[in-house]
Amino acid sequence: MDAAERALAALEKEMMKGRGRWVADFNESFRAYRVGDVTFDLFISGNTRTKGFLLSRLFSFFLNPNYEVGFFAIDAHDRDELNARRLRRWILAAKSHMAKSEMRWAWLVLVGQSPSDSAKKCVREATDKNVGIAYLDLDSRQVISADTFLGRQLKKYIKL
Protein backbone atom coordinates (compact mmCIF):
# COMPACT_ATOMS: atom_id res chain seq x y z
CA MET A 1 0.00 0.00 0.00
CA ASP A 2 1.56 3.33 -1.04
CA ALA A 3 1.48 6.57 0.94
CA ALA A 4 -1.49 8.01 -0.95
CA GLU A 5 -3.54 4.84 -0.46
CA ARG A 6 -2.69 4.85 3.26
CA ALA A 7 -3.77 8.50 3.46
CA LEU A 8 -7.04 7.74 1.66
CA ALA A 9 -7.71 4.85 4.04
CA ALA A 10 -6.99 7.13 7.02
CA LEU A 11 -9.29 9.84 5.61
CA GLU A 12 -12.06 7.30 5.10
CA LYS A 13 -11.80 6.07 8.70
CA GLU A 14 -11.59 9.62 10.03
CA MET A 15 -14.74 10.64 8.20
CA MET A 16 -16.79 7.53 8.96
CA LYS A 17 -15.62 6.74 12.47
CA GLY A 18 -13.72 9.76 13.71
CA ARG A 19 -13.92 13.54 13.68
CA GLY A 20 -16.01 13.65 10.50
CA ARG A 21 -18.99 12.51 12.51
CA TRP A 22 -19.07 15.86 14.31
CA VAL A 23 -19.95 17.50 10.99
CA ALA A 24 -22.17 14.96 9.28
CA ASP A 25 -23.17 11.34 9.39
CA PHE A 26 -20.86 10.09 6.64
CA ASN A 27 -22.34 6.62 6.27
CA GLU A 28 -21.60 5.15 2.86
CA SER A 29 -18.20 5.01 1.25
CA PHE A 30 -17.22 4.09 -2.30
CA ARG A 31 -13.74 3.53 -3.68
CA ALA A 32 -12.86 4.21 -7.32
CA TYR A 33 -16.13 6.08 -7.74
CA ARG A 34 -16.77 7.15 -11.30
CA VAL A 35 -18.56 10.40 -12.06
CA GLY A 36 -18.60 11.03 -15.81
CA ASP A 37 -15.02 10.80 -17.00
CA VAL A 38 -13.53 11.42 -13.54
CA THR A 39 -12.79 8.60 -11.11
CA PHE A 40 -12.59 9.72 -7.50
CA ASP A 41 -10.46 7.44 -5.38
CA LEU A 42 -12.84 7.91 -2.49
CA PHE A 43 -16.39 9.17 -2.19
CA ILE A 44 -18.38 9.19 1.03
CA SER A 45 -22.00 10.27 1.15
CA GLY A 46 -23.57 11.61 4.29
CA ASN A 47 -26.27 13.66 5.90
CA THR A 48 -25.95 16.53 8.35
CA ARG A 49 -28.71 15.11 10.54
CA THR A 50 -26.61 12.75 12.61
CA LYS A 51 -28.15 9.72 14.22
CA GLY A 52 -27.63 8.60 17.76
CA PHE A 53 -29.39 7.34 20.83
CA LEU A 54 -32.43 9.13 22.29
CA LEU A 55 -31.18 12.59 23.36
CA SER A 56 -28.63 13.05 20.58
CA ARG A 57 -31.19 11.87 18.03
CA LEU A 58 -33.80 14.27 19.41
CA PHE A 59 -31.27 17.12 19.53
CA SER A 60 -30.22 16.40 15.97
CA PHE A 61 -33.82 16.22 14.76
CA PHE A 62 -34.70 19.66 16.12
CA LEU A 63 -31.45 21.54 15.58
CA ASN A 64 -29.55 20.06 12.63
CA PRO A 65 -30.51 20.74 9.03
CA ASN A 66 -31.39 17.72 6.92
CA TYR A 67 -28.80 18.17 4.15
CA GLU A 68 -27.24 15.52 1.96
CA VAL A 69 -23.49 16.11 1.82
CA GLY A 70 -20.48 14.44 0.24
CA PHE A 71 -16.78 13.90 0.67
CA PHE A 72 -14.64 13.35 -2.42
CA ALA A 73 -10.94 12.51 -2.43
CA ILE A 74 -8.60 12.00 -5.33
CA ASP A 75 -4.96 11.03 -5.60
CA ALA A 76 -3.54 14.13 -7.27
CA HIS A 77 0.04 12.86 -7.16
CA ASP A 78 -0.69 10.00 -9.56
CA ARG A 79 -1.65 12.38 -12.29
CA ASP A 80 -0.02 15.27 -14.14
CA GLU A 81 0.80 18.52 -12.40
CA LEU A 82 -2.25 20.07 -10.78
CA ASN A 83 -3.46 23.12 -12.64
CA ALA A 84 -6.61 25.26 -12.61
CA ARG A 85 -8.12 23.39 -15.56
CA ARG A 86 -7.71 19.98 -13.95
CA LEU A 87 -9.02 21.21 -10.61
CA ARG A 88 -12.02 22.79 -12.35
CA ARG A 89 -12.74 19.43 -14.02
CA TRP A 90 -12.78 17.66 -10.65
CA ILE A 91 -14.95 20.35 -9.09
CA LEU A 92 -17.42 20.15 -11.96
CA ALA A 93 -17.56 16.36 -11.67
CA ALA A 94 -18.21 16.66 -7.92
CA LYS A 95 -20.86 19.32 -8.55
CA SER A 96 -22.62 17.24 -11.18
CA HIS A 97 -22.87 14.39 -8.67
CA MET A 98 -24.01 16.81 -5.98
CA ALA A 99 -26.80 18.07 -8.25
CA LYS A 100 -27.88 14.51 -9.03
CA SER A 101 -27.94 13.49 -5.35
CA GLU A 102 -29.34 16.81 -4.14
CA MET A 103 -26.31 17.52 -1.97
CA ARG A 104 -26.03 20.97 -0.44
CA TRP A 105 -22.28 20.99 -0.05
CA ALA A 106 -19.25 18.74 -0.44
CA TRP A 107 -15.60 18.52 0.44
CA LEU A 108 -12.96 17.69 -2.11
CA VAL A 109 -9.56 16.56 -0.87
CA LEU A 110 -6.58 16.25 -3.18
CA VAL A 111 -3.93 13.88 -1.85
CA GLY A 112 -0.43 14.41 -3.15
CA GLN A 113 3.20 15.07 -2.42
CA SER A 114 5.14 18.34 -2.56
CA PRO A 115 2.76 20.41 -4.65
CA SER A 116 4.26 23.18 -6.78
CA ASP A 117 3.60 26.83 -5.93
CA SER A 118 1.17 27.12 -8.83
CA ALA A 119 -0.74 24.04 -7.56
CA LYS A 120 -0.95 25.58 -4.07
CA LYS A 121 -2.18 28.83 -5.61
CA CYS A 122 -4.89 26.94 -7.55
CA VAL A 123 -6.17 25.35 -4.36
CA ARG A 124 -6.07 28.57 -2.33
CA GLU A 125 -7.90 30.48 -5.03
CA ALA A 126 -10.68 27.95 -5.56
CA THR A 127 -13.67 30.01 -4.56
CA ASP A 128 -16.59 27.63 -5.02
CA LYS A 129 -18.94 28.21 -2.09
CA ASN A 130 -20.49 24.74 -2.15
CA VAL A 131 -17.32 22.69 -2.55
CA GLY A 132 -14.66 23.02 0.14
CA ILE A 133 -11.24 22.14 -1.27
CA ALA A 134 -8.01 21.16 0.40
CA TYR A 135 -4.69 19.67 -0.67
CA LEU A 136 -3.15 17.14 1.68
CA ASP A 137 0.62 17.18 1.25
CA LEU A 138 1.92 13.80 2.37
CA ASP A 139 5.57 14.94 2.50
CA SER A 140 5.19 17.91 4.80
CA ARG A 141 1.95 16.61 6.39
CA GLN A 142 0.44 20.03 5.79
CA VAL A 143 -3.00 20.89 4.53
CA ILE A 144 -3.48 23.73 2.06
CA SER A 145 -7.08 24.78 1.87
CA ALA A 146 -9.20 27.07 -0.23
CA ASP A 147 -9.99 30.38 1.40
CA THR A 148 -13.70 29.67 1.75
CA PHE A 149 -15.75 28.70 4.79
CA LEU A 150 -15.98 25.03 3.72
CA GLY A 151 -12.30 24.94 2.80
CA ARG A 152 -11.21 26.29 6.18
CA GLN A 153 -13.54 23.87 7.98
CA LEU A 154 -12.20 20.94 5.97
CA LYS A 155 -8.67 21.75 7.11
CA LYS A 156 -9.69 21.01 10.71
CA TYR A 157 -10.90 17.51 9.95
CA ILE A 158 -8.24 16.03 7.69
CA LYS A 159 -5.12 16.13 9.83
CA LEU A 160 -2.96 13.05 9.30
Partner: peptide
Protein backbone atom coordinates in the same frame (compact mmCIF):
# COMPACT_ATOMS: atom_id res chain seq x y z
CA UNK B 1 -20.23 -1.83 -7.44
CA UNK B 2 -19.27 -2.18 -3.80
CA UNK B 3 -19.70 0.30 -0.98
CA UNK B 4 -19.10 0.27 2.73
CA UNK B 5 -22.05 1.41 4.81
CA UNK B 6 -22.24 2.20 8.52
CA UNK B 7 -25.50 2.22 10.44
CA UNK B 8 -26.40 4.32 13.50
Amino acid sequence: QVSLARNE
